[in-house]
């Protein structure tokens, strides 16, 4: 968060005191990125695009088009074969393994299969993310109920994941992703396992989070979802961007 503040201040002074609106700068930049796995054709070929801070970007494509690989490059689970990914101005290939956790704390991740711990309650699942980063217990006791309130689970703190519906579980995941106050939320098919009603709720939550200033990168192949978001759409096919539309409905160009 500190880095953003510095940058915002910098920009603010450059443009004078008049501009109090949210500043635009690229939080994510793919600089001619190619990702190839051993023996296969390139999973991603020469991707070159920017995402501005505060944007809501939907990533569309058939399965195998390279959506997940692209997301993995963002949270540095994979590294680019060629080119460079910049997050918040920082080249990801330069991050040492030891420092990787600090990069991940700036990104909240949401997955299709939730990845909640079944033996921990809703509260504990979210608190765990803070415990793992050495946050004080007082702070955890204060922050966790607050964030669960925001996603609408304020009354289910002591429930276990299996006692919740799929939609509710995904809200817990969203709460866990938000607890670090991340710069960006990366969501990989977050509605893949959900009914349309819950899916819509999750997307609305993501839009709400985006309105509060967090950048969202959402991968999905669900037409309704993309239409509901109705923001910038990047279409991937066979590892290439075939369409990058600032404000669109779901379509294969």
């Amino acid at each position: 968060m500190k880095k953003v503040n510095e940058k915002e201040i910098e920009l603010a002074t450059e443009e004078g005191l008049g501009s109090m609106e949210r500043e635009i700068f690229p939080i994510l930049k793919f600089d001619h990125v190619t990702k190839a796995f051993k023996g296969d054709a390139a999973a991603l070929a020469d991707l070159d695009f920017e995402i501005q801070a505060g944007e809501f970007v939907t990533l569309v494509g058939h399965s195998g088009a390279g959506k997940s690989t692209l997301l993995k490059l963002i949270y540095a689970e994979e590294t680019a074969t060629e080119g460079e990914v910049y997050f918040n101005g920082e080249p990801l290939s330069q991050i040492k393994k030891r420092k990787l956790p600090y990069h991940r704390r700036k990104i909240g991740m949401v997955f299709q299969d939730f990845k909640l711990l079944p033996k921990k309650t809703v509260f504990e699942n979210v608190a765990y993310a803070l415990e793992a980063c050495g946050v004080h217990t007082d702070e955890i006791m204060e922050d966790v109920p607050q964030i669960l309130d925001i996603v609408g689970l304020g009354d289910k703190l002591q429930k276990f994941p299996h006692q919740l519906s799929g939609g509710e579980q995904q809200k817990v995941v969203l709460a866990r992703a938000l607890i670090h106050k991340p710069l960006m939320i990366v969501a990989d098919e977050p509605t893949g396992n959900l009914d349309p009603q819950s899916s819509a709720e999750i997307i609305d939550l993501l839009l709400k989070v985006n309105n509060l200033g967090t950048t969202i990168v959402l991968a999905s192949h669900d037409r309704d979802i993309v239409d509901r978001a109705a923001r910038r759409v990047i279409v991937l096919e066979k590892g290439k961007i075939i369409c990058d539309d600032a404000k669109s409905k779901y379509r294969i160009c």
Binding site: R98, R104, R105, Y128, A132, C133
Partner: peptide
């Protein structure tokens, strides 16, 4: 394994894991 995966995702330091 699942716990370790989650720890990695939420940015737990390597030593904490």
């Amino acid at each position: 394994k699942p716990e370790i995966e989650v720890m990695r995702l939420v940015g737990a330091s390597n030593m904490f894991i």
